[in-house]
């Protein structure tokens, strides 16, 4: 029996369409897919940031303008308006203030929009300053044995005082202004950052690549610059977002109890503090700044959570 070999080339059969086509994702789509919390937190924060920047153009009026004749006006009755637009009921009376007005007749909407500026300023400034100062102190005490013992005892002392009490004490000492709020909260947050940095530095110092760098004659300042700092950055960034969130809450708390931003400046804490007396009869004065504060803090915390996952090298390796 002979085997005949055909000289004709046979086209490879086309693959059956059982495999679903790979969903093509663009860069943005890929990012959203991998880090949904970063996307969500980033989105909320971006909106809040836009509000802060564009506050004067969002249909706001002077947030400090008093109008005693129009005090405690309610926000529009959402249910009645919805009913009117859907075709039931009569047209409700036109509203004067989107978020209502407070007991001095100031526009709560304008105050909340402008209050965004205070919260973000305080949050970012505290996060920045306490990270930078904490990084410096942490690296120093991680590298200088003698300093470590002294500095860390001071930090222990600071941390033994509840941070909000410490901030209140500092505010009582230095007086009310936005800068002083930043200073007071930053002082309360620095121990936490320097603790974190010191821990990271101490563990990095024992890493073989740092020992190898010492063995290859790298000088101490270059070891810190090349090997220690880049590897401290990820935990610092994550910590900074949480500090940002807690600073915003801290500012609101201080203002709420009257130890924060001066009452002339509309901050969310101040608006809530002033609305507190009328809380049971005019809840909207407290409600709107509270919602904004919660959403902003949620956004920052989501961002921090996402960054922690994204910057963790163990998790970053997965495709």
């Amino acid at each position: 029996m002979s085997i005949t070999v055909s000289n004709d080339f046979v086209a490879a059969p086309t693959l059956p369409d059982v495999l679903p086509p790979r969903r093509a994702r663009g860069r943005v789509g890929m990012f959203l897919h991998r880090y949904p919390t970063i996307a969500m937190g980033g989105f909320i924060l971006a909106v809040v940031l836009l509000i802060a920047i564009a506050a004067p153009y969002l249909g706001t009026v002077d947030p400090t303008a008093l109008a005693p004749a129009r005090r405690t006006r309610p926000p529009p009755d959402v249910v009645a308006w919805a009913g009117y637009w859907l075709g039931f009921g009569d047209k409700p009376p036109a509203w004067q203030f989107l978020f209502g007005s407070d007991m001095l007749g100031r526009d709560v909407y304008s105050r909340v929009m402008y209050g965004t500026r205070v919260s973000l300023t305080v949050g970012f400034a505290v996060a920045f300053f306490s990270s930078v100062i904490g990084l410096f102190i942490g690296v120093c005490s991680g590298f200088i044995r003698v300093l470590d013992a002294v500095v860390m005892r001071i930090m222990d002392g600071l941390m033994s005082i509840p941070s909000i009490l410490l901030a209140i004490a500092l505010m009582a000492l230095i007086g009310a202004s936005v800068q002083n709020v930043v200073l007071a909260i930053a002082v309360a947050e620095v121990p936490r950052v320097s603790r974190l940095v010191r821990g990271v530095v101490l563990s990095l110092r024992e890493q073989p690549y740092v020992e190898a760098a010492i063995a290859s004659g790298t000088r101490v300042h270059l070891i810190i610059w090349r090997h220690i700092l880049p590897n401290t950055l990820a935990p610092i960034i994550v910590q900074a977002t949480f500090i940002c969130a807690s600073a915003m809450l801290g500012e609101a708390t201080l203002s709420f109890i009257g130890a924060g931003t001066p009452p002339t400046i509309p901050s969310w804490g101040n608006i809530m503090a002033e609305g507190r007396a009328l809380w049971q009869v005019k809840p909207y004065i407290v409600f709107f700044p509270a919602i904004f504060l919660s959403l902003t803090v949620l956004g920052v915390n989501l961002l921090g959570d996402g960054l922690r996952d994204a910057l963790d090298p163990r998790l970053a390796k997965r495709i």
Binding site: Q207, E211, N231, P313
Partner: peptide, 23 residues
């Protein structure tokens, strides 16, 4: 000591931790 370090070098056990991940 630094000049001496030129002449004596080291290779460590764990190849994962003996290289700086950001270099």
């Amino acid at each position: 000591l630094r000049q001496m370090r030129r002449r004596v070098q080291v290779v460590f056990q764990d190849p994962f931790s003996s290289l700086n991940p950001r270099q």
